[in-house]
Amino acid sequence: MKIAVDEEKCCGAGQCVLLAPEVFDQRDDDGVVILLDERPPENLYGPVREAAAVCPAAAIEVGEGA
């Protein structure tokens, strides 16, 4: 799995951080997503997919390739 985020789309809702705090964080000044781990371990795939699915701005892209 490889993750990409689009900071321009991010609205700072923070759902990704709540679901997968090992993978996502937010900037203090504006709440925009920070990607901590673009290739998370397999045990985090479920939370990452859920974070991408619930992102109101569709700012998280999950690629299943290497």
Rank of each mutant, 00 (worst) to 15 (best):
A51K: 00
D25P: 04
A20F: 06
F24C: 06
E8W: 01
F24P: 03
Q26A: 15
L18D: 12
E50K: 15
G31R: 04
C16E: 04
I34L: 14
A4P: 03
K9M: 05
L36D: 09
P21L: 11
P40V: 03
L35G: 02
D30L: 03
P56Q: 08
A4G: 10
E61D: 14
L35C: 10
A20I: 09
A51P: 04
D30V: 09
G31N: 04
F24A: 01
G65R: 11
E22G: 06
V62Y: 02
P40F: 03
E8C: 02
D37A: 06
G31L: 03
Q26I: 07
G31K: 03
Q26G: 11
P47H: 08
P56G: 11
E64D: 15
A51S: 08
K2P: 07
E8H: 10
D30R: 03
E7K: 15
E8V: 06
V33I: 15
K2C: 01
A66H: 12
D6K: 00
A59T: 01
E61R: 09
V62I: 14
R49G: 00
M1R: 02
D30A: 11
R27E: 14
D6V: 00
A4C: 08
L36Y: 02
K2L: 12
E42F: 08
N43T: 13
C55A: 15
I3S: 02
A57I: 10
L44I: 06
L18E: 15
K9W: 01
G31F: 06
G31V: 07
P40R: 08
G31H: 02
C11M: 07
N43I: 14
G14P: 10
L44H: 08
C10L: 13
V62L: 07
G31T: 06
P47W: 09
V23K: 00
E7Y: 00
I3M: 12
N43S: 13
Q26F: 04
V5A: 01
P21K: 05
L18P: 02
P41E: 14
P56V: 00
V33E: 00
I3H: 10
